Simulated assay, not measured.
Amino acid sequence: MIIGVPKEVKTLENRIALTPGCTQTLVRRGHTVLIERNAGTGSGITDEEFQKAGAKLVSAEEAWGAELVVKVKEPIPDEFQYLRKEQILFTYLHLANDRPLTEAMLHSGCTGIAYETVQLKDGTLPLLMPMSEVAGRMASQVGAHYLEKSQNGRGILLGGVPGVSPGAVVILGAGIVGTNAAKMAMGLGAQVTMIDINQRRLVYIDDVFNGRIITMSSTEHNIRQAVKYADLLIGSVLIPGAKAPQLVTADMIPTMKPGSVVVDVAIDQGGCIETSKPTTHLKPTYMVDGVLHYGVTNMPGAVPRTSTFALTNQTIPYILKLAEQGVDAVRNDDALLPGLNTYNGTLTCHAVGDAFGMKSVAPEDIL
């Protein structure tokens, strides 16, 4: 199969969907790999490295012309022209927060398989996990930075010092993002509170952190009280493929302390904080009611080398299956099946259909 890897064009997105090692594996299996020139430079990977691995260097149009197109981030409007019926697109799509892209995918007839909805039988999201780990760890790191007075924050050192209380970090969601955010926040010496709807998960968090994290059930009352004392509020709520529920309402934000910081990692799926909106690495923050908000939609793109290798470690087995079997791989793989979001002009993800009031069918009913 011919596999194309276009250069990412989202603002300051420096990840790439294949490494030279992955490329070599595909080429040795008899596949042709087309890499857009300079696509890997942001991750510290040169064109020469890809050539040595057996890739052909091409233009963006040629990369998009491949049978299987592998990316990191969803296509932006300038790329919609490349979508077509004979194409399999394998990338993060986040369609539930992007109606124009959803409509473009459906209009083109493209087969869209979303990293974030590939799911194992036990509920694990193997292709979302590595970037969730990166984003979670970054959330505390970013939040600590923006709490500095020079960044319009409260002037709080999260870890405090002897004789001065540490900062308070409140994390909504105790999944992969939330757990990794908690690890980093605790490492900085902060006081950490985690809120989740799943009691079993809270028991797990209490166990692995030896009771050093405050755990709370996710109710409106508990959230409303917790945001009042938070210096840093991290949103990490996820419903696979669906628009994130807005757990923090706009009227809660003025109750927060002036100069406190919100980092909404769920922004790719619409955000779990009502006042959140998408931002970029060029202009990452904005102020609402005296609270600094950070809503960058591609946080791991700030550490592209780490993120590229972490992501491709997980995606390459699925890329190999798609390269060797085409759409049949989706039929034959229980994890890839829920990853199918669009097929031949039909929406195949119920969560996206629910977000936009659009008709959808189950993947198994259309393949």
Rank of each mutant, 00 (worst) to 15 (best):
M358D: 05
A104D: 11
A168S: 15
V134Q: 05
R28S: 05
E103F: 09
L337W: 08
L101E: 12
V296C: 13
A242M: 02
E133A: 06
L93N: 06
S165V: 12
A144F: 03
Y294G: 02
T275R: 09
A17S: 10
T41Y: 12
A63H: 10
V69I: 04
I35R: 00
V192C: 00
L188G: 05
F209H: 00
S236C: 12
N222Q: 13
G153M: 00
P245K: 07
I113A: 09
N298E: 11
P338K: 11
C349G: 01
G353T: 03
T279V: 08
G301S: 11
T41E: 14
T315L: 01
P258K: 11
M184K: 13
A323Y: 03
I366D: 02
G353K: 01
D268R: 11
I76C: 07
A96C: 11
P130N: 05
T312N: 13
Q87N: 08
G295A: 05
Q119L: 02
F80C: 07
V169N: 06
G178C: 03
H107M: 12
M138V: 02
V27F: 09
Y82V: 10
M256W: 06
M1R: 13
G241M: 06
V237E: 03
N198M: 03
G270V: 06
A329G: 02
A114C: 07
I3Y: 10
A244L: 08
V327K: 14
L57T: 10
T41M: 10
K283W: 10
A96D: 04
L93D: 03
A310C: 06
P278F: 04
I267N: 08
G187S: 12
A226D: 08
P278A: 12
V265R: 08
L12G: 00
M131S: 03
S260R: 04
G189H: 06
N198F: 00
H293T: 13
T25Q: 15
Q225A: 14
N344Q: 15
R212L: 12
V203Y: 15
H350T: 13
E13F: 01
L340E: 09
G339N: 11
G153V: 00
L238G: 01
E79K: 05
Q225W: 08
D289L: 11
F90R: 02
N97C: 02
F356H: 10
K121R: 13
K283L: 14
G235D: 10
D333A: 08
V237N: 09
D47G: 10
D334T: 15
M216E: 14
T25C: 11
I16Q: 08
A226T: 08
I319D: 03
L320T: 14
Q24F: 05
L12S: 14
A168H: 15
A226E: 05
G290T: 01
M105F: 13
R200F: 09
S217R: 15
S165M: 11
T11Q: 14
R29I: 01
D268H: 07
Q246L: 08
I239F: 10
K56R: 15
T117I: 10
L120C: 05
R99Q: 15
P317D: 13
Y146N: 00
D47Y: 05
G4P: 08
Q151K: 13
T249L: 14
